[in-house]
Design a binder for these strands. Structure first.
Length: 282
DNA sequence: AGCCAGGGTCTGC
DNA sequence: GCAGACCATGGC
C-alpha cells in the first residue's frame, strides 16, 4: 500500500475497496454519502471524511498517525480480499457475487456499537435503523464537532431506563438496549474475554443478552469481533440459501462464510437480476 | 392502505 | 423441539 500526505490530507492506494459498497452493504449505519460524492462518518469516537477515485482513497484532515492507529485496522487494510475472493470464487454463485460486490471490506467496528446497532436492526429496515442510531448518538453520545456525535458508551446507557429512550422511537427494542448496556457495563458480558473465546462460547454469551438471538449474535461476531466464519442469516440470506444452495452452503467457503454472506447479501439486494422476483417477497 | 423490515420472546402443543 | 402470535415504528 502506497501512502502519501499532501497538505492535511492522506492518500493511499487500496485494492478491493469501494466505499459505496462497503458502507451500503448493511454492516454499518453511521456513514453517509455527501453531495460531492465523498463519504462522512463517525467510528471509534473519530469523525472522518473520505473520497475515492479508482484505487486511490483520500482521507481528509487525517494524519499518518491516525491512519496507522485507527483507520488501517478499522478498514481491515492488512487483509488481502483478492485472495479471499479467489478462494470463494470456486463456487459459481459466489464467483458472481464476488465480482458484483468486489469492493466490500468487513469493517472492524466497536463491539458495543455493533451489539447495540444490531439489536436495533431486528425486524427493522436499514433507513430506519440509521435514523434511530443517529438519534441515540445525538441524545446520549459526546459532541465531537459541530455536527458529529460519538456513539454513547455502555456505561452511559446502563444508567438509563427504557423510558429514557422513548425519543429514539425504537419501540420494543428499548428494553433490549438497556439490558445489553447493563450486561456490558457490569462485565457480565466481557468484551475483552469474548475476543479470545471459542466462537461457540462467545455466541452463547452474546445470546444471554435480551433481544440478541442467533442472527444478531452472528452480526456482532462478524462486524464487532471480525469472526469471519460467523454467518448471519436474515430474510435475504434465507432467500439466497433456498434459491442457490438447496444442498447446503459449500464447506470450503465456511471459514470465510461471513464475508461470503456479505457479498451475497449485497448482490441479491441490489442486483435486480440476481434472483427471481418471486424470491424477493415471500 | 397495507405489507414489510439485517428477529426475538413467549406461549402452547 | 417447533409453529404461531405478538411486538413499535415507519419506509415504501
Amino acid at each position: 500500500m502506497k501512502i502519501r500526505i499532501s497538505g492535511n490530507n492522506l492518500y493511499i492506494t487500496a485494492k478491493d475497496f469501494d466505499p459505496q459498497q462497503t458502507f451500503d452493504c448493511g454492516q454499518c449505519f453511521r456513514w453517509t454519502k455527501l453531495e460531492d460524492n465523498r463519504f462522512h462518518g463517525v467510528a471509534l469516537g473519530r469523525e472522518l471524511t473520505l473520497g475515492s477515485d479508482q484505487d486511490e482513497v483520500v482521507f481528509y484532515n487525517t494524519s499518518a498517525e491516525d491512519f496507522e492507529n485507527i483507520w488501517r485496522d478499522y478498514f481491515d487494510f492488512d487483509t488481502d480480499y483478492s485472495q479471499i475472493k479467489a478462494l470463494l470464487s470456486k463456487d459459481e454463485v459466489l464467483n458472481k457475487a464476488c465480482r458484483y460486490a468486489h469492493g466490500i471490506r468487513i469493517l472492524k467496528q466497536d463491539p458495543w456499537e455493533a451489539i447495540c446497532s444490531f439489536i436495533i436492526s431486528q425486524n427493522n429496515n436499514i433507513p430506519r435503523i440509521r435514523s434511530i442510531v443517529e438519534r441515540l448518538c445525538e441524545q446520549f453520545g459526546e459532541q465531537i464537532s459541530e455536527t458529529a456525535y460519538s456513539f454513547p458508551t455502555a456505561d452511559t446507557i446502563a444508567k438509563l431506563s427504557p423510558d429514557d429512550l422513548s425519543e429514539l422511537r425504537a419501540g420494543f427494542r428499548n428494553k433490549y438496549i438497556i439490558d445489553a448496556a447493563q450486561k456490558i457495563a457490569s462485565g457480565k458480558v466481557d468484551i475483552e474475554a469474548i475476543r479470545s473465546m471459542p466462537i461457540e462460547q462467545a455466541d452463547e454469551l452474546l445470546q444471554s443478552i435480551r433481544g440478541v438471538g442467533p442472527k444478531v449474535a452472528a452480526c456482532v461476531l462478524l462486524f464487532g469481533f471480525h469472526k469471519t466464519e460467523a454467518f448471519p442469516i436474515d430474510v435475504w440470506m434465507k432467500r439466497a440459501l433456498e434459491y442457490f444452495y438447496k444442498d447446503g452452503f459449500p464447506d470450503f467457503a465456511k471459514p470465510y462464510g461471513g464475508i461470503a454472506q456479505q457479498y451475497i447479501f449485497h448482490y441479491i439486494r441490489t442486483c435486480e437480476t440476481a434472483i427471481p422476483d418471486e424470491y424477493r417477497k415471500k
